[in-house]
Design a protein around this nucleic acid. Structure first.
Length: 267
DNA sequence: AGGGAAACCCGAACGC
DNA sequence: TGCGTTCGGGTTTCCC
């Protein structure tokens, strides 16, 4: 769920609310949420740090502090909530930060998959990520050449964050359907024309997701509405919006995958 | 190098 | 109604 569009929405929302505030103290309720450092070190290092900026890289939220970067990955069920008052744990709260203006930033995460890093070397985590698909260095030509460079199943390659940063399972299915490519086709068999179609589809789908504030597919609602506009994701058994053929569900790289068997023919 | 599987988690949705 | 089971999301790690 927290694929690029949703995290982008979070970053935009949080920026004006957090920039300029100081983190006074922290409480950790689920230590595994903290990828690094240890709980004690985290509490010590984060205390007194002013939030200078809020941004996003791939699916990571970045709180730029005076001496560190706080990297937050929401995974599927993670949520950031700003509450009034003092630190007081609520259901599924994993880490709470007391802010200087009598508010609390809560990292609430039902499934405990989300991770937070406090580091002065964010490149060690962000450095391996592929290009941002909405930036200008992600071109159709770049995509074509790099698909050609490898011999990978198309869908797992698109999900690989070191190849392109930000696509998750939902958006990948949507992109492949628009570009009329089969998820099991090999990356080095994609023609220049198809690579162009895929490039265009990736940008279209991500922009649409951002415009609709992300997708809220599980019972964990976050206000997105892109889920009402899926073309194939979760629509197995329904008609393909392009040709009317029944959409099929299959498994590719252990991920639920939805295709129109006619539009996305293997060749 | 690439792919499969398991692990990490929970609650919804299902089957009986 | 109340059990037990299955599922899925993103990522890492291990194995072939």
């Amino acid at each position: 769920m927290p694929e690029l569009p949703e995290v982008e929405t979070f970053a935009r929302t949080l920026k004006p609310e957090l920039v300029g505030k100081t983190i006074l103290s922290a409480e950790v309720y689920w230590a595994r949420t903290l990828a690094t450092p240890s709980t004690d070190q985290f509490k010590r290092q984060v205390a007194g740090q002013k939030i200078l900026d809020v941004s996003r890289r791939a699916k990571y939220l970045i709180l730029n502090l005076e001496h560190y970067n706080l990297l937050i990955h929401l995974r599927m069920s993670g949520d950031l909530i700003i509450r009034e008052g003092k630190i007081k744990a609520e259901k599924h709260d994993r880490i709470l930060l007391q802010l200087s203006d009598h508010t609390v930033l809560a990292f609430n995460d039902t499934r405990k998959f989300g991770r937070i890093w406090l580091t002065d070397k964010p490149e060690t985590i962000l450095g391996k990520l592929g290009p941002e698909p909405l930036e200008k260095n992600f071109t159709s030509q770049w995509l074509y050449e790099n698909l050609l460079n490898r011999k990978r199943l198309l869908k797992p390659l698109l999900l690989d964050q070191t190849f392109i940063a930000g696509l998750g399972n939902i958006y990948t299915d949507e992109c492949l359907h628009i570009a009329q490519l089969h998820p099991l086709s090999l990356s080095n068999t994609v023609t220049q024309e198809k690579a162009g179609a895929l490039h265009k589809a990736i940008r279209t789908v991500l922009k649409e997701g951002i415009r609709r504030n992300g997708a809220s597919i599980d019972w964990v609602y976050r206000g997105g509405e892109f889920q009402n506009h899926f073309r194939v994701y979760g629509r197995d058994g329904e008609a393909c919006p392009v040709c009317g053929t029944i959409i099929q569900k299959l498994t590719v790289g252990q991920r639920g995958t939805h295709i129109c068997p006619v539009c996305q023919h293997m060749r």
